[in-house]
Amino acid sequence: MPVDAEDLPAPATPGPPAGLVTVGCLDEPPGYAVRRPVGARSWLFTWTTAGRGLLRQGGTAAEAGAGELVVLGPGVPHHYAVAPGAGHWAFWWVHCQARAAWGGWLRPSLLGDRLYAVRRVPRELWPRVTGAFRRMHADARWAGEAAPPGPEPEPVPARVAVAQGAAARELALSGLEEVIVLATAAAAAPGAGAAGRVDPRVRRAAALLAADPGAAHTVESLAAHVALSPSRLAHLFAEQLGQSPMRALRDARLRHAAQLLEATGLPVERVAAASGFASPYHFSRVFRQRYGLPPRDWRARRAGAAGETGTGGAGEEAGSAGEAGGRE
């Protein structure tokens, strides 16, 4: 039976204003809840450090425990609260406009209604992800002079950080991108193998592709890195991650190219080369297949949309804005 985001009673909380990137951390007792009957115009990223939260968006629900990244896309009614039976919910949160390249990373974790749940992030990565949120919180407060401030002392920063300047905004978004890449690249694929986990050798091969998509990877070179035969790696990779190593490489290269197009002024030919495509014509063809527009037109559309409020999906048309208030 579908669960509607309006089922949990709570006063309506206004959506965040447009044009900001905001970062905060909360540790809330039972009874804490936020309800937005029309959703928000920005994306909301949450990383749980302790306790449990329950997030509902449209007809989709996800419970978040420690070490889990749950993302709510814009424009869908949502409600989130301390999970029933939990003693508290401690979590980092960010409201912002999603970068186009994030869609490819998040898409495998989509549960429905623009709700993404990234689970099974290896415990050894939790400190680094939490540290990235702390650096985001510090970078968002940078005024552009001297060095950015250091992270606030443990355990929980008491204030919400609002990125006012362009430099602070880009630093904060880069920190969030680190979180997304770390969490999604390392998370085990649901249902992979008898224990529901990805073989560490397959995970290392996928990490090599994600870390340097422009390199001249082959199945043979990846297999040598992880001490498997090429045929065995290809079989395990497709079985556990749902695509071949070379298809994963192409996807990683397209994500990298989209990021370069959005964040730099490099000519399309140089973007293609930097992303590992030998032919700019082939690059333009596969880019259009993925994003619906040739690279130049896609870049122009992204540039024209900069600063505007949107409610599209991650990877194509992202929502914008952050929350300026203390309650996320």
Results as ranks from 00 to 15, higher is better:
Arg327Leu: 12
Pro148Ser: 01
Pro30Ile: 03
Ala258Lys: 01
Gly315Ser: 00
Asp212Cys: 08
Pro230Val: 01
Ala252Leu: 11
Ala86Ile: 01
Gln259Gly: 15
Pro155Gly: 15
Arg169Cys: 15
Trp105Gly: 06
Ala66Lys: 10
Leu208Gly: 06
His225Gln: 13
Arg203Asp: 02
Arg159Gln: 15
Gly31Leu: 01
Pro9Met: 04
Glu328Ile: 08
Ala278Gly: 13
Ala81Met: 00
Val23Leu: 10
Arg114Lys: 09
Asp27Gly: 09
Ala306Pro: 05
Pro37Tyr: 03
Pro267His: 04
Pro230Cys: 02
Ala62Asp: 08
Arg288Trp: 04
Thr46Pro: 05
Glu262Pro: 02
Ala163Glu: 04
Ala187Met: 12
Phe277Asn: 02
Ala138Leu: 10
Val21Ala: 04
Tyr80Ile: 02
Pro84Gln: 10
Asp212Glu: 11
His235Ile: 04
Ala206Ser: 13
Gly59Gln: 05
Gly319Asn: 02
Val162Ala: 14
Leu173Thr: 09
Glu170Gly: 14
His282Phe: 15
His256Cys: 07
Ala224Glu: 13
Pro280Glu: 06
Pro295Trp: 06
Gly315Asp: 05
Trp298Ala: 14
Gly325Val: 08
Asp199Arg: 00
Ala117Val: 05
Glu145Thr: 14
Pro230His: 00
Val23Arg: 05
Met136Phe: 12
Thr49Gln: 11
Gly193Asn: 06
Ser320Glu: 10
Arg204Pro: 07
Leu233Ser: 01
His79Trp: 08
Ala158Leu: 14
Ala147Glu: 12
Ala192Thr: 06
Ala146His: 14
Gly39Asp: 01
Arg327Thr: 12
Glu63Met: 13
Arg290Pro: 05
Leu249Glu: 06
Pro14Ser: 03
Val21Asn: 03
Leu55Ser: 09
Glu269His: 12
Gly65Gln: 03
Gly59Thr: 08
Ser284Glu: 14
Thr311Ser: 11
Glu170Tyr: 15
Arg159Asn: 09
Glu178Lys: 13
Tyr32Asn: 10
Gln97Cys: 09
Leu260Cys: 00
Pro267Trp: 03
Trp89Thr: 04
Ala187Gly: 15
Pro127Val: 01
Ala132His: 11
Ala64His: 11
Leu173Gly: 04
Glu308Asn: 07
Arg169Ile: 13
Pro77Gly: 08
Glu316Asp: 11
Gly75Ile: 02
Gly75His: 03
Ala278Val: 13
Ala132Ile: 08
Gly75Arg: 05
Ala161Glu: 03
Arg56Lys: 07
Glu262Ile: 05
Leu260Lys: 00
Ala168Asp: 10
Leu236Lys: 00
Ser244Val: 03
Pro9Glu: 06
Ala146Thr: 11
Ala216Cys: 00
Ser229Tyr: 06
Ala215Gln: 03
Val118Trp: 01
Ser42Phe: 12
Trp47Asp: 00
Phe133Ile: 08
Leu293Ala: 08
Ala50Thr: 02
Ala207His: 12
Val76Arg: 09
Leu171Cys: 04
Glu262Met: 11
Arg302Gly: 05
Thr309Trp: 06
Ala5Thr: 03
Val71Tyr: 09
Glu239His: 10
Ala223Gln: 00
Glu124His: 10
Glu323Gln: 13
Arg197Ile: 05
Leu182Met: 08
Leu44Cys: 11
Ala143Phe: 09
Pro84Phe: 09
Gly58Trp: 02
Arg201Phe: 01
Pro280Gln: 07
Ala61Asn: 07
Val21Gly: 00
Leu266Cys: 10
Ala183Phe: 11
Ala194Thr: 14
